[in-house]
Amino acid sequence: MSYDFAPLFRTAIGFDRLAQVMDTASRSAATPSYPPYDIAKTGNDSYALTMAVAGFGPEDIELVVQDNTLIVSGRVNDPQNEGEILHRGIARRAFERRFALAD
């Protein structure tokens, strides 16, 4: 569900910043942004999906096609024998992205 905050911009003098914040928050909550991905058209009916999934191995990624939807999910298993981690800069958080497939 999405809300249109455009009328607030015209009628609420002095509250335009609040309306912008609410509008931005509602859009970002509705659209997941992790992990980032690219979709390239490689032919008339073929596409290539590229996802940036740093810290995930092939065994951590699951691809499922269900009800005309491609579901890509990632879950990192417990790290094995990585040694002592001094800094963790790669998120490794679980994710699920859904892509509608063309008929």
Score class of each variant (00 low, 15 high):
62 E>G: 00
102 A>G: 10
25 A>H: 12
45 D>N: 15
1 M>W: 05
42 T>P: 01
78 D>F: 03
4 D>C: 13
11 T>A: 13
100 A>G: 09
40 A>C: 04
25 A>L: 14
20 Q>H: 06
90 I>Y: 08
60 D>K: 03
36 P>S: 10
26 S>E: 09
96 E>P: 08
102 A>N: 11
46 S>Y: 09
18 L>R: 13
33 S>G: 04
38 D>Y: 13
96 E>M: 12
103 D>W: 02
51 M>R: 04
74 G>H: 06
70 L>V: 08
100 A>D: 05
58 P>H: 02
13 I>T: 13
54 A>F: 11
68 N>I: 01
33 S>T: 12
37 Y>A: 11
38 D>M: 09
51 M>P: 05
21 V>A: 15
20 Q>T: 07
92 R>F: 01
7 P>E: 15
36 P>L: 08
58 P>K: 03
99 F>W: 05
70 L>D: 12
10 R>F: 04
19 A>E: 02
9 F>L: 14
62 E>H: 01
58 P>Q: 07
73 S>R: 14
59 E>S: 14
27 R>H: 08
52 A>E: 13
79 P>S: 00
72 V>W: 11
43 G>C: 03
40 A>D: 08
94 A>E: 15
102 A>V: 07
102 A>Q: 11
81 N>C: 06
90 I>K: 05
1 M>V: 11
29 A>L: 12
44 N>Y: 09
48 A>R: 15
69 T>D: 13
75 R>A: 10
16 D>L: 06
91 A>H: 02
2 S>Q: 06
87 H>E: 06
30 A>D: 12
95 F>R: 02
38 D>A: 14
37 Y>G: 04
